[in-house]
C-alpha cells in the first residue's frame, strides 16, 4: 500500500521539517519514501509543490491522487487543489504570503477559499498551531488510523509509536 501526500508552499517557506518528520517515521516503520520537488534557482516567491509518496512506487503525482494535501499557505492550497483526491484531506495553514501582484494592488488575494473548500474534508490550522507532528497525525488519519488511536499515539508523543503506526497502515 502507498499514500500520496502533496505539500503546497511558497519558495522560501521551509518544508524540510515536514519532510524530515515523515522520513524519521518512515525510517522507524521500515516504509519507503519517495519525494519530488521541482528543482529551481528560485529560493523565494515562486509557487512550489512537493510530492511525497509513503510506501512503494516512484511514479509522479497525478491530479486527484493525493490523499493528503498540506498547504503551508492558503492561496497555494487552492492552487494545488486539483491534486487532492475526492476523499482526500486538506490541511490548510491559514497563513497568507502575498504575491507581488497582490502586494502592489493589481489583483486581490482570494477571500472565498473557505467557501470553495466547504464540501471537502478540511483541517484549518492557524499558523502558530501548525507543526510537522500535526501533519503526521493527520496523515495517519488519512491512512485510516482511527482518530482515538491517533490521539493516543500523539499523547504518548513517542516518535516510535508514530513510526510503528505508519508501518502498520502501509502494511510493512
Amino acid at each position: 500500500m502507498s499514500l500520496d501526500l502533496a505539500i503546497a508552499y511558497v519558495k522560501g517557506q521551509d518544508i524540510a521539517p515536514y519532510i524530515g518528520c515523515l522520513d524519521r517515521f518512515c525510517d522507524k516503520s521500515g516504509a519507503k519514501m519517495w519525494i519530488y520537488d521541482e528543482p529551481s534557482f528560485a529560493t523565494h516567491g515562486e509557487a512550489g509543490l512537493c510530492h511525497v509518496r509513503l510506501g512503494e512506487g516512484n511514479t509522479p503525482l497525478l491530479a486527484g491522487e493525493a490523499k493528503v494535501l498540506v498547504a503551508l499557505e492558503e492561496l497555494e492550497g487552492r492552487r494545488a487543489l486539483r491534486y487532492l483526491a475526492k476523499d482526500g484531506i486538506l490541511v490548510l495553514c491559514r497563513f497568507h504570503r502575498l504575491p507581488l501582484s497582490v502586494a502592489t494592488g493589481t489583483v486581490g488575494y482570494p477571500s472565498d477559499t473557505l467557501d470553495i473548500l466547504a464540501n471537502r474534508p478540511l483541517f484549518c490550522v492557524q499558523p502558530k498551531e501548525f507543526s510537522p507532528l500535526l501533519v503526521c497525525a493527520l496523515t495517519l488519519r488519512a491512512m485510516g488510523v482511527r482518530e482515538s488511536d491517533v490521539r493516543g499515539i500523539l499523547a504518548n508523543d513517542s516518535s516510535d509509536a508514530i513510526g510503528r503506526a505508519f508501518g502498520k497502515s502501509l502494511g510493512v
Binding site: G45, E46, L75, R79, S101
Partner: peptide, 14 residues
Amino acid sequence: VPKEETGLPLRSPM
C-alpha cells in the same frame, strides 16, 4: 486532466 484554477494571482520567482 483537471487543470489549475484560473484567475488566481501568479507568483514569480524572486
